[in-house]
């Protein structure tokens, strides 16, 4: 049982990060950003290129990856999302699918379809907790997930800009009329969404072993499931949703360990998603009435 909790918490932290990225953009723009996972993967390949091929320290490569993908998020907001101003939100979501395909084909052209791998920031064997070996990177991912949660909560509730982000999420036109620079808020959520997604990818990569373009799509989907379980509009809910998804995944993996059913973990997560949408469509922490419909 302890094993399930440890595995669930480690995976859950990563899903929580993906979910937070999704929720930020959804709250800020009313759009599900389907490109998020692939933009994070692009950051991963950039880090591979800098760290493996050019021998840069992990931290430098990782930071560069986060900065570049954040910039991609900001540019996408500036030149696509903002231009679509009053367009239906579904159209903007379709535009993010366009970005997803664009990034994916860019990766295939530049790095090819053969898998790459990226070492973690630390070497070492890690620790044995409840029968599970926890690598230093996995431990770091939990710390980072917690840190990101606290930092975001502080930013959003304690600073004027953060309050502006929350206000713009609730009522963009009213936010503009009190003087909140809504364009900057929008740029922030798209940039932060892309950057956080890259952070999640960087932390999960060493545990995956090898990855090819598009391979992290499953993680993004689990993150999306976490966001929906958490309520899609709630940042704390995103983390709790991440943990729930992680635990469901880990426990289903254990329960069906002998049956060798392929894809049973994924199935379990999608059943969780389905049940959430049927029984409690506004999630654990979401508000019942969603303005974005």
């Amino acid at each position: 049982m302890g094993e399930v909790f440890v595995l669930g918490a480690i995976a859950g932290g990563i899903y929580g990060l993906f979910a937070v990225a999704t929720v930020l953009v959804y709250r800020g723009s009313g759009v599900l950003n389907f490109a998020q996972g692939e933009v994070g993967t692009l950051g991963l390949f950039l880090a591979v290129w800098l760290i493996n091929d050019h021998g840069m320290p992990w931290v430098v490569g990782a930071l560069a990856a986060v900065v570049v993908t954040t910039a991609i998020g900001v540019l996408f907001e500036r030149f696509v999302v903002r231009k679509m101003g009053d367009a239906p939100r579904v159209s903007v979501a379709v535009a993010t699918v366009g970005l997803l395909l664009f990034v994916l084909s860019g990766e295939l052209v530049r790095v090819g379809a053969s898998p790459k791998s990226l070492p973690g920031p630390f070497s070492g064997n890690g620790w044995r907790i409840a029968g599970v070996v926890v690598s230093p990177t996995q431990a770091l991912s939990l710390v980072v997930a917690l840190g990101v949660g606290v930092a975001l909560a502080t930013l959003l509730r304690r600073t004027d800009f953060g309050l502006g982000v929350l206000a713009a999420a609730q009522d963009p036109s009213a936010a503009q009329l009190v003087g909140v620079p809504v364009n900057r808020v929008s740029a922030f959520v798209w940039g932060a969404g892309a950057g956080l997604s890259t952070v999640a990818c960087l932390l999960v990569a060493p545990g995956l072993g090898a990855f090819a373009p598009g391979a992290l799509g499953r993680l993004f989907l689990f993150g999306l499931a976490a966001a929906i379980v958490g309520g899609l509009t709630s940042l704390p809910g995103a983390f709790v949703g991440g943990l729930v998804v992680g635990l469901v995944e880990a426990s289903s993996g254990r329960i069906f360990a002998e049956s060798s059913l392929p894809g049973v973990k994924t199935l379990a997560v999608f059943i969780l998603l389905l049940v959430t949408l049927l029984v409690r469509p506004h999630g654990l922490f979401g508000t019942r009435e969603s303005r974005h419909g």
Binding site: L166, A174, L177, V178, T287
Partner: peptide
């Protein structure tokens, strides 16, 4: 501005 429909931020 006192916008039409008041438009306070309900969750804040």
């Amino acid at each position: 501005h006192v916008p039409q429909g008041r438009q306070v931020f309900p969750e804040l």
